[in-house]
Amino acid sequence: MLRNQQWSKVKKKLDSFKCDSLKDRVQFTVTNYRRAHDQLGRAFITVDKKEVLNMCTITSERALISREYEIKREKQIPYTDWSRNLDIWEEAHDWVLDEGIFAQYDFFDSVEQYFQQPIHESLKSNNMLIKIFALIDRRVGKRTLVKMKESVLNEKKIVQFFYKLRCETEGIRIAK
């Protein structure tokens, strides 16, 4: 499990997959808060030293709890009915991820999955983070990027941002 490894080793491996054109522009950072009860903090991605994606555990947990409450209210499940909590949590977590609200542990889970699967699977992933990692991966060539032009239009804004960034740095013209 990546969360137990030193961040410097994980970062080095993640950076080794970055394409040359984005090597110095895209950075992955993890910050842990020692005084937090779980000592988790946040992970974030910067482009040209500007934060473009923040994966804060506290923000994610708040959204998750709020969504769990909404699901219970919508389905009229009594608060004391513990038997369905796991199902509700999973539904809420999927919704939070789909909204692009990630915790630090989601970042590490995504990195681990990205490391373990072929690049073509990462490009087709429903996980935005994995897709972002794949879009800046040196193993993805210009022809593959050009073929993705239409399908990227259906992606979230942050995925489109990384697609456009990669295309620009590779000299690929994409119509707006």
Results as ranks from 00 to 15, higher is better:
9 K>V: 05
10 V>A: 11
11 K>A: 05
11 K>I: 01
15 D>G: 00
17 F>P: 06
23 K>M: 09
25 R>H: 05
29 T>I: 14
30 V>M: 11
30 V>Y: 08
31 T>G: 01
33 Y>H: 07
40 L>W: 11
40 L>D: 08
41 G>D: 01
43 A>F: 12
43 A>R: 03
43 A>L: 06
44 F>Y: 15
48 D>C: 08
49 K>L: 10
54 N>Q: 12
56 C>D: 15
57 T>I: 06
60 S>G: 15
60 S>M: 13
66 S>V: 11
67 R>E: 15
72 K>W: 04
72 K>R: 15
74 E>C: 01
74 E>L: 07
74 E>G: 00
79 Y>L: 12
82 W>V: 05
82 W>P: 00
82 W>L: 06
91 E>Y: 01
97 L>S: 09
98 D>L: 04
101 I>V: 15
104 Q>A: 01
105 Y>P: 00
107 F>T: 08
107 F>K: 06
109 D>K: 13
114 Y>M: 04
115 F>S: 12
117 Q>S: 14
122 S>D: 07
124 K>Y: 11
127 N>C: 15
127 N>D: 15
130 I>M: 10
130 I>E: 12
130 I>D: 03
135 L>R: 02
135 L>I: 02
135 L>C: 01
139 R>P: 02
139 R>Y: 08
146 V>P: 01
146 V>M: 07
148 M>V: 12
149 K>N: 10
149 K>P: 01
159 V>T: 07
159 V>I: 13
159 V>G: 07
159 V>Y: 04
160 Q>S: 13
161 F>H: 05
161 F>S: 06
163 Y>W: 07
165 L>K: 01
168 E>Q: 09
170 E>D: 07
173 R>W: 12
173 R>C: 06
174 I>C: 07
176 K>S: 13
176 K>G: 11
